[in-house]
Structure formats: C-alpha cells, structure tokens
C-alpha cells in the first residue's frame, strides 16, 4: 500500500496528475474510512495537512471556505455565522461533535450523498465550487456539480479546493431544515434550505434546495418560478406547497417513504413562507 502525505496543494495535485498514483483523496475520513470498512485501497492521497485549504476568507461580495475546513470550524466561525447562518445550522446537524471535528465541507460536497447536510444550503445560496488541477482552476455552480447519483463534475486530476458563497443581499433570509431519523447523529429523510428576499409580502427572490428527495441534491425551479414576484397569501402558500410536492420525485428507502417526503417538503416550504411572511415588515 502507498500512502502519500501531502503538505501542500501542488504536491497533492502532482500525485493525482500521475495515473499511476491516482489514489483516493483522504481529508477528514469520516465517510471514506467507513466506506472502506477495513478494506483499504491500494493507495491513499492524504490531503488533510494542506493548510492552504483550511481558511475561511471574507471578500467583498463572497465568503470563501477552504475545502478542508471542518464542520466544527464553520460552526464557530463569526464570518459564517453572520453571512450564512443556515450553513452553521446545517453543520451542527452533521453526525455528532466527533464527526463535526473531523469531517470537512469539501468532503461533504464531493461525497455526493443525496442526503448530505451542507449541499442544500450551498445550492440555495448559489454557491460555486473551485476545482483545481495542475492545469489551473475552474469555478462551477454547485447546481452543475452533481451529475447523477454519487457522480460529480470533478475530473480525476482535480481537487475541490474551495466553496464560494455569495454574501446575502439586503432583506435576504434563509432557513435550514433537517428532518432526520432522530434528533442527533441522524441521516436525513428530508433536508432543505430556502433562501428568499420577501419585501412588502412580495417574493422578490427565492431559492429552494432539497436533499434526500432525488438521486442528487436538487433545486426546485418550477416552484421557485411559481413564487417569483407573487404577493404572498394563504392561497399562494398553499399552491406553492402543492407545486413542490408535485415537482420532487423522492423514493421509498430504508429511512422513509416517497409520500412522506413530499408531504414534509411541502409543509416545510409552507412553514418557511408563513414564518417569513409573518415576519416581513408590512405584514
């Protein structure tokens, strides 16, 4: 077995650029080591020590989070608490403290589980991911990153290096919801983030992202479109609930049923819109 302990990004990119040493990348290991279950791969490229990917940086319009930032660090980050508190809420529900202390946001994204906790928030925020190879860097919206079940746009010689989250616009609010198998250490039955700007009861902008309802984390464009520009009232909220229940196509699995997931997703959207509507200044 070969074990590459990489000290910096260039070194790691060099190792995976070579097909001979293109072994799995290991960050916190909270998912991978469980998946390996004692049957280790022939080689491991350990990027856990790449310090340059452990930073949270605030820029003018965006917050950049390095791929190796742990969920625990995000929970404690003043920057993320201020600019994307929904992500903090999501990170608090990843496993338990032990997992949050090791698991990284980059790992949570590339693991590409449809039930992942942070991707719905990032997708609702129109976050981009930075993919780096020796050839250079590219940025793509997270919406385009997930291709199908557990498949991503990441090329074999690339590392997901950063996630870039736009800062909230004035009047913007967002809420994270997770309905899981229990109150802690839960895998989601439905995980969801809704972000919106609602002024004078009018929906000026809305993004709805969901996990555990499709082979990948998804947005709900039809329902978003339906809501855009609408003046909220009980009828509209009810229609939006129905629209979302129709739009998503969840399945029955070990954790839950398709029907229940539709019901819950619709109700959570209803709850979000009602709460936001009641909070909005002119209501």
């Amino acid at each position: 077995m070969r074990y590459f302990k990489c000290e910096n990004l260039t070194e790691a990119l060099g190792v995976i650029a070579d097909k001979e040493t293109r072994f799995p990348l290991l960050a916190g290991g909270t998912d991978l080591i469980v998946q390996w279950g004692g049957r280790m791969p022939e080689g491991i490229v350990d990027i856990g020590g790449v310090e340059e990917l452990k930073l949270i940086v605030q820029r003018e319009n965006v917050v950049e989070i390095g791929a190796l930032v742990t969920h625990g660090t995000i929970v404690a980050s003043k920057i993320v608490q201020r600019d994307c508190s929904a992500l903090v809420d999501a990170c608090k529900t990843v496993g338990a403290i032990q997992i949050q202390n090791r698991g990284t946001i980059g790992g949570n994204i590339v693991n590409a589980s449809p039930a992942g906790d942070t991707p719905p928030v990032l997708m609702a925020f129109d976050a981009k991911v930075e993919l780096t190879s020796l050839a250079g860097r590219r940025h793509i919206p997270l919406r385009e990153f997930y291709l199908s079940y557990r498949k991503t746009a990441l090329k074999p010689d690339e590392i997901l290096t950063r996630v870039i989250i736009p800062k909230p616009k004035p009047g913007e609010s967002a809420t994270f919801y997770k309905i899981g198998t229990r109150k802690a250490q839960a895998i989601s039955k439905v995980v969801m983030c809704v972000r919106s700007i609602i002024q004078n009861e009018i929906v000026e902008d809305i993004a709805i992202a969901l996990g555990s309802v499709a082979p990948t984390v998804v947005r709900a464009p039809k329902t978003e479109k339906f809501l855009m520009g609408k003046k909220l009232n009980e009828n509209i909220i009810d229609e939006a609930r129905k629209s979302l229940a129709e739009e998503i196509k969840p399945i029955d699995d070990i954790r839950s049923t398709a029907d229940y997931r539709k019901f819950v997703a619709a109700n959570l959207l209803g709850r979000y819109l009602t709460d936001t509507f009641l909070r909005s200044p002119s209501a």
């Binding site: 290991g29 080591i33 491991i44 403290i97 032990q98 202390n101 090791r102």
Partner: peptide, 9 residues
C-alpha cells in the same frame, strides 16, 4: 477536540 478513533487512520 473529541474525535472517534475508529475512523481515523
């Protein structure tokens, strides 16, 4: 930090 030693190599 508290961690699970079964999933650290």
């Amino acid at each position: 930090e508290v961690v699970n030693s079964c999933i650290i190599i």
